[in-house]
Design a protein around this nucleic acid. Structure first.
Lengths: 148, 148
DNA sequence: ATGTTAATTGCAAATCATTTGCAATGCATA
DNA sequence: TATGCATTGCAAATGATTTGCAATTAACAT
């Protein structure tokens, strides 16, 4: 019943799924909903923890994040702790940016500017490499954690 | 016999170990020897593979690298593939630098300049963070791999 | 509506990197 | 040369991620 209700609620994100001949499944919608509500990079386990129990298997989250990454719908970040983190890529954005992470409490600040972009060109010229990109993250101690 | 031969062969690196009341053991010397001979970041497994069989346990390499890192004798790098890599820190160097890594063949180029250092200061001022550092690695396709 | 089919999921087991417990061993110092 | 604590090897534990496979389901054509 009400055959189109479901489609009406689908966001651009789900449309993107459709366009790639991917199925719009409950787990995928749930994952995208979580990402939409969180503006910071989330680990798969964090996504899993936020989801209602039984909503989606951890393995499915891993598989979904790979798919979303390959579709450029999420951006993967490495904070150097051996756990991948993902952020939804906004409309008209390429998802490329950096973070400032507190090494004590793990607070995360997004950094607007991307500095080394200009340098990639110089690097590419000097080295002969092509398609040069970079990963850059900053680490420090946030104001709250400075009082030891 | 020949009680001092061993000591005569000890490098500055082993002296450093001594100074920190660390023991100069065969596995540690072997590991440092490997690092001295390789100018690129090595994974623990790569170090293990280069070492003569039975020379040193993998777990010992993991423990040694942690120790060497805390003593600032090696620098740890993350290339985003979930495996730590280490480079010996040269005399008078702080070990801080970056790499350009080929995403196809994993060739690694060291990059002399460190660009974002000046930006750390600005970031620290803007955010209130202290002790701001960064990790930066570049990725691309090397000349050899460009011919598909 | 319903059937068909390929994509997707859950679950459990497998991998991979890394860590850790513990008893045996080995350096450094007396 | 003896003593004591650091260090090691080995095996088992951990934590993140991947994978095989049978059961389920979305998409689309009946």
């Amino acid at each position: 019943m009400k055959p189109h209700v479901h489609q009406e609620r689908l966001s651009e994100l789900n449309e993107k799924l459709r366009q790639k001949s991917r199925k719009v499944t409950a787990p995928r919608q749930a994952i995208l909903d979580v990402l939409r509500k969180h503006r910071h990079p989330l680990t798969n386990k964090e996504i899993f923890a936020v989801l209602p129990p039984g909503e989606c298997d951890l393995a499915t989250i891993y598989r979904s994040m790979h798919m979303l990454e390959s579709m450029r719908m999420v951006q993967r970040f490495d904070f150097g702790d051996g756990t991948a983190r993902y952020e939804l890529i906004c409309e008209g954005d390429d998802g490329h940016h950096h973070h400032l992470i507190c090494t004590r409490c793990s607070e995360v600040l997004e950094i607007e500017d991307c500095f080394p972009v200009a340098l990639e060109k110089k690097l590419a010229e000097d080295s002969g490499f092509k398609f040069v990109t970079h990963k850059l993250e900053f680490f420090g101690v946030c104001p709250k954690c400075q009082g030891k």
